[in-house]
Write a protein that binds this DNA or RNA. Sequence first.
DNA 1: CACAAAATCCGAAACGTTTTGGAAAAACTA
DNA 2: TAGTTTTTCCAAAACGTTTCGGATTTTGTG
Lengths: 338, 338
Amino acid sequence: MTTIKDIAKAAGVSVTTVSRALNGYSDVSEKTRKKIMDIAKQLNYSPNTLARSLVMNKSKTIGLLVSGMTRSALKDNFTFEVMTGVNDYIAKTDYDVILFNTNSTKQREKTYSQLCRERRVDGVILQGIKTDDPYLTEVVESDIPCVLIDIPIQSDRVGYVTTDNVYGAKKAVQHLLELGHRNIAMMNGHDYAFVSKQRLQGFCEAMQEANVPIRKEWIVNGDFSEEMAEARAYELFTKHENITAMFCASDLMALGVMKALKQLGLRVPEDVSVVGYDDILLASYVSPALTTIAQNKFQMGYEAASMLIDMLEGNEAKVVTLRTQLVVRESTAEVKKG
Amino acid sequence: MTTIKDIAKAAGVSVTTVSRALNGYSDVSEKTRKKIMDIAKQLNYSPNTLARSLVMNKSKTIGLLVSGMTRSALKDNFTFEVMTGVNDYIAKTDYDVILFNTNSTKQREKTYSQLCRERRVDGVILQGIKTDDPYLTEVVESDIPCVLIDIPIQSDRVGYVTTDNVYGAKKAVQHLLELGHRNIAMMNGHDYAFVSKQRLQGFCEAMQEANVPIRKEWIVNGDFSEEMAEARAYELFTKHENITAMFCASDLMALGVMKALKQLGLRVPEDVSVVGYDDILLASYVSPALTTIAQNKFQMGYEAASMLIDMLEGNEAKVVTLRTQLVVRESTAEVKKG
DNA sequence: CACAAAATCCGAAACGTTTTGGAAAAACTA
DNA sequence: TAGTTTTTCCAAAACGTTTCGGATTTTGTG
């Protein structure tokens, strides 16, 4: 593999000059620059980023730490869409992305900062980790720039991008209220997700503003899992037959809920209205198509990458909150007069 | 950031000894090893892989070069599933994955070997590139270990993993033949994909063995795109009303075909049977659910990673061919007697 | 022409590791 | 005890860059 030394020798100059010529410094004459460039091309030279990173003390890589790259998470391509957004932005820079996986026990032996420092990543994007994850405390303590997705923690070194979860949930519930529903249940995620808290808050606000009492026993956790949501919904709807609508904190759980309803012989939307959250690909393909709150996952990744690169260039950590959108499809309808 | 030197100073030994202690060499006494370990932990030391890679001339990273990380490719999560498989295997090793993106014009200025050599990746996994991609010729010429997905090129440094495309397609067509279909069309991908050639071959073999004539004008290319397939199918079915079944080289195209049929007032499967290929997530959710040839994309990635790591450890490049499976759902039925 | 200023170049140190080839110390052996 | 082996340690070179400080050459000025 040809190095800068080889070029220097071939061109009859010092390595310093080669380096400065290749990097476009002004203190090398056009004549020698051209000569060096030509030789570099001819020798098929490509710089060793490892060596460069070592001396410059920056690696031009960002770490992508996601937890959703598991076989079971394939159904909602949330993770992938975010990754695609990240990738899309990064592709336009001179950074590269290195994939950290947190799902394996092997990796888990290392702490967050070990992970980052070993590879000397310049910054990190974190997605899909729970609020009780030990990594999270490390993130704030660490001095490495970081942007979180859907986790509202901020410092001068860490920013985040999220969506207007409270308002999004509110819109979903208001939609149900406008359809005349009063007996509205909620399938939430779990206690270790900020979005769960926020979506619950949106739910409550909408209900309170409409003067509809909130029934605590109608709010259950489905752990963001289709199966779990199905089981919980089955229990709930057998116990409380008067529920006419359910707001779910994720589309995947909404699918589970619809399965449960089908098993119970309840029709969607005639007997029960269901609204989801996320607008995953499946939402528009299932039957009945799912009314949901759409969030632009691609853009979340894109914005996250953009913010991180900004931060690496000396700008401050920010907070980006993206808008959501109510997408009305077939799974919601006016409440039956009874 | 604490280095090996800091430890050496603190422990009163040389950097050599620290290095050898930390790496488990036998020529350091247990007493000093323990002392060094303790100090390392206390100083919160983590090794600089950049420096290590530089001197060892191996980076313990593999490059993942995919073309499917685009906004438009989100629908079939083929790419993501493969990536998940790769990630899953790599997580068990001490390698890390670095993401190369080929979709941006910026990156495209660099050649394949430039991309690889700059980051000094030890090996590469390539997925989703076309057969006329200039990268492909570089792959074989380059001396860097590589495993291809769905591209049957082999040398001592490059292996590949694929599925039994010929047999898979054959099974699909045989399924249609068994249902009594004789007027079978095919929606193929494009000429720059090996799988297209192979699936066409499987189509032809099945037809010939059943003594059913192949109508060349009934074989069209949908470019693996839903929209394109829809357009092509619309043309085809308006022109040739006697077609009773279509084999599609991808599920996504099958969806497009079904859309076209719907527009034409043709029912699936009553009027036309459709069988896809891939078994993407959507296949089981659309209505009617898609009969298709399932391939285990996760495992493809897993096997690819496994093979690559094997190669990096000195083993030979291999060829892995995974089995496919016919999944009969609702989009195929017996041909109408007429 | 002599001098100053600008342009062009270079040597050497540094980044944080690993590894080679011994040296010093400790432990055996006869 | 003297010699031999084993154990434990280390100095220095190497990996391929960048950069600091200065040296040399060219150009400009009066």
